[in-house]
Simulated scan of single mutants.
Amino acid sequence: MNTPISTFAPAPLEIPAAARVGAYDWQTAAAELDGFGCAVLPRLLTPEECRAISGLYSQERHFRSHVIMARHGFGKGEYRYFHYPLPEILGGLRTALYPHLSGIANGWNERMGTEERYPEDHASFLKQCHEAGQTRPTPLLLQYVPGDFNCLHQDLYGELAFPIQVAILLSEPGRDFTGGEFVLTEQRPRMQSRAEVVPLRQGDAVAFAVHNRPVRGTKGNYRVNLRHGVSRVRSGKRHTVGIIFHDAR
């Protein structure tokens, strides 16, 4: 008798995380992040991997906490934070994605006149987080059903916050759910806010600015403030996994 896939943790990546992540055109991704505050990484996960990760949601042993958004005014829906050790597939991607994003993050800080610089490897950055008392893992698995949404927010969990994070859509739009678009807003000084709706398919990832990013203007760089969220799910069930690179207090 075959055992349902949801009883297993996801299998290791068939293609190693470093090779999979390194295959993207990161120069183009950096330009997208600079220009719009986000960049799509198509097909980062296979459909089978997406289903396996989604299947973890009901298995409490993988998680350190469970959040019902409505209880905190975050919107409607729910999510669970993974505990350490992370599932291999997520830990591998978190480690592999970080070096490609840290150079972008350091360039942003330089342009915004911020002294903080991020180390080249994720282990060194996590060491800084833990020394600052931020020891709880932040990768999370989100679940939405009809009527659920995620208010515009920023994922900041302590003094140390890596300025870029990644979300991977695990469900297929139009088949598994309708609605539920990923939304990014950018508040610009003395200007109206700009909204970006990011189209994603199952397995696609979006890297996006968590808090601030620089924008080139006629008089040099200025700082904009970003928030992200998810529009109302109209039907079905939507799962997303979030990869946040800093840990929490």
Rank of each mutant, 00 (worst) to 15 (best):
H130I: 04
E115R: 14
F36V: 09
I168C: 02
P87D: 03
E115Y: 10
Q154C: 13
A105R: 04
A248C: 11
P199L: 05
C151T: 11
K76M: 12
M69P: 13
A248N: 12
G91F: 14
V241T: 06
A195D: 03
T138Q: 02
I53V: 13
A19Y: 08
S193G: 02
R111I: 10
Y57K: 07
V40C: 01
L101Q: 07
G220V: 01
L101K: 03
P139A: 05
A132K: 02
R20T: 12
P137G: 00
E186M: 06
E116T: 15
E60D: 15
F208M: 05
L169N: 10
Y222M: 04
H211Q: 15
Y144S: 00
D204T: 07
L160R: 07
E172G: 01
V230T: 03
P173A: 07
M69K: 12
I243A: 09
L13Y: 05
E131F: 03
L45Q: 03
W108T: 09
H246S: 11
A70L: 11
N2Y: 11
H62N: 10
V215E: 08
G147P: 05
G37E: 00
A29V: 11
P16I: 03
P42M: 03
E48V: 14
E115S: 13
I89L: 15
A248F: 09
L200T: 07
T7D: 12
H211C: 08
R232C: 10
T138W: 02
L93D: 06
A205M: 04
G35F: 01
L93H: 07
S193M: 01
R80S: 00
E186I: 05
